[in-house]
């Protein structure tokens, strides 16, 4: 079953007076439980594609559907609701809310979903335990290492059981050992809990971990390898 369906998506940006073609009619399906990487050099369009799959940005033409829901015609509020309930995000940096503790950061999405305090606190702690952050519930982001912050971000992304988790260069700010540990953890989540992960990356380590590697170049899919 395809959890993500991208059909003929085009996107252009205006930079100064120049029109830049970020995506030139990309079509892509990702299956439920996938562990896929969108790879390519800077400016290839991989982050744009990831943002469009995540409903953070809208295509000029074409359509995207996640878990059967098409983004066409959705308002910003509808997109926000879609992101809240179906999509988890892990960003490269500035990933956590600095004034909230680790457990509050993980709880935050459930708070937006309207879950009661006791349930969301318990679930947040359980997921933090799963990502190896037992006992660090009350630490603020500034009191955690980069790797620990990314683990909190992963915990937040998966805590509400989204259809997909989108990770935009999650290892870019981490050393290789920490990055490797993070990827192992995400792989385990994928295998044990069937969480679908889609990465945007140019890190070889991420590409090695990915079971499917989609190479993007100049706004088009240059290669699509299923390992």
């Amino acid at each position: 079953m395809n959890i993500v369906q991208v059909k003929e998506v085009k996107k252009t940006y205006i930079q100064g007076k120049v029109e830049v073609y970020a995506l030139r009619g990309v079509s892509l399906d990702i299956k439920k439980g996938g562990f896929a990487a969108l790879a390519g050099p800077s400016g290839s369009g991989k982050t744009t594609l990831l943002n469009i799959i995540g409903g953070l940005d809208l295509p000029d033409s074409g359509d995207v559907a996640v878990d059967g829901s098409s983004f066409s015609g959705m308002s910003q509020a509808d997109l926000a609701k879609m992101r809240l309930n179906k999509i988890g995000f892990v960003f490269q940096a500035y990933n956590l809310i600095p004034v909230l503790s680790a457990v509050e950061n993980v709880e935050f999405v459930m708070l937006l979903q309207g879950l009661d305090k006791v349930e969301r606190r318990q679930r947040a702690k359980d997921v933090l335990d799963d990502v190896g952050l037992e006992g660090k519930y009350d630490r603020r982001p500034a009191e955690l290492s980069g790797g620990q912050q990314q683990r909190v971000a992963v915990a937040r992304a998966i805590v509400s059981n989204p259809s997909i988790v989108l990770a935009d260069e999650p290892t870019a700010n981490l050393d290789s050992k920490t990055g490797n540990g993070l990827l192992e953890m995400m792989k385990e989540m994928n295998e044990k809990k069937s969480v679908t992960f889609i990465f945007s990356t140019h890190d070889d380590m991420v590409m090695d971990y990915a079971r499917r590697l989609v190479q993007i170049r100049d706004g088009e899919i240059a290669d699509d390898i299923v390992k």
Binding site: L56, A77, A80, K81, L84, Y94, F108, R156
Partner: peptide, 16 residues
Amino acid sequence: MREFGLLKALGMKPSW
């Protein structure tokens, strides 16, 4: 501003 972007990405409505 970047933090507001993050909050929105997580599904926070503009009104919130």
